[in-house]
């Protein structure tokens, strides 16, 4: 007997469903914290250009490496730029690129996974081998290759990241589809003569959607870490645009005497990753999905 049968709810609108999920997520302390951090970062990304106290690229040699003060809250960096300004602006690019990168990962990973799960057999074997082979190349090397060949523009970074982070989603989508495909309602739809498209759209996607979304949210935080590493290596965001990865990389040599210039971006980056992670976990729990693989941090 299923215990959640007890309260027989009526059909809800999509809006009601989404808000119910969000409320469930927020009712757990970890989910609440995660959501708050994430929302904070998103809002910050939108409003930071308007609230930034200084110009992020204004170099001022007379103000090099100032310690935090009432004027420069987080101090200044080696070029005399305001660290506070650069920190609140530093998440924008990363957040945008990885958000769209995750959408692409979701799309191709989800669809390919569903396709493999549906057709099964040899096609499935071959496709999965190819996906595995492709992605057993250390992703950072491959990314470096792509970036050095095609440049570091957003149009390159988004699809490249999306491609490399879709692998895990292929696996999850495929496994979820495998579970569904064995069910009699699929057999029933086949026997009625529905088209493959209709079977995927009406029967499979509603049943695998949750698992794929959760995986996508998880991948987002991985991708953020990956993208920041690229920036750190100098292949992500190009200067002078502020970016946490880039800022950490620039300031790391100064850590011993100008700790402020490195702490602020580290806090920014790690809090966002933790925020997304906690949110994804809470999302999974709210949907009743058991995640066995754990977050990267």
């Amino acid at each position: 007997m299923k215990l959640d049968n007890i309260y027989q709810e009526e059909k809800k609108s999509n809006f009601a469903k989404v808000s119910e999920i969000i409320i469930t997520m927020a009712s757990r302390p970890s989910g609440f914290i995660g959501l708050s951090i994430l929302i904070f970062h998103v809002i910050l990304a939108f409003i930071s250009p308007y609230i930034a106290p200084y110009d992020f690229k204004a170099i001022n040699p007379t103000l090099m490496l100032q310690a935090p003060s009432a004027e420069y809250w987080f101090g200044t960096d080696d070029l005399g730029r305001d660290v506070f300004t650069r920190t609140i602006l530093g998440g924008r690019t990363a957040l945008t690129i990885t958000f769209f990168g995750s959408l692409i990962a979701l799309l191709w990973g989800g669809l390919l996974g569903i396709f493999c799960g549906l057709v099964g057999g040899k096609t499935d074997d071959i496709v999965m081998r190819i996906v595995d082979a492709f992605l057993s190349i250390p992703w950072i090397l491959a990314m470096l290759l792509i970036v050095s060949l095609l440049g570091t523009s957003t149009e390159v970074l988004i699809p490249a990241l999306g491609f490399f982070y879709g692998k895990g989603i292929v696996r999850v989508a495929r496994a979820a589809t495998h579970d569904v495909i064995a069910k009699d309602f699929i057999v029933s739809a086949r026997a009625r003569g529905h088209s493959n498209f209709s079977i995927i759209w009406n029967e499979i996607i509603p049943n695998v959607r949750d698992a794929i979304l959760v995986e996508g949210a998880m991948r987002w935080s991985w991708m953020l870490l990956g993208f920041s590493s690229l920036s750190f290596l100098g292949f992500g965001v190009s200067p002078p645009t502020p970016d946490w990865g880039l800022m950490i990389s620039n300031a790391r040599g100064l850590m011993s005497f100008a700790y402020w210039s490195v702490i602020a971006p580290i806090v920014g980056l790690s809090s966002l990753i933790i925020g997304i992670n906690l949110t994804a976990d809470a999302f999974a729990k709210a949907l009743g999905i058991d995640r066995s693989t754990k977050a990267p941090v």
């Binding site: 009699d184 309602f185 057999v187 029933s188 009625r192």
Partner: peptide
Amino acid sequence: IQLIFQNPDESLN
């Protein structure tokens, strides 16, 4: 020709 299955938990989406 239509089918009805053993376990309605499995045969209804």
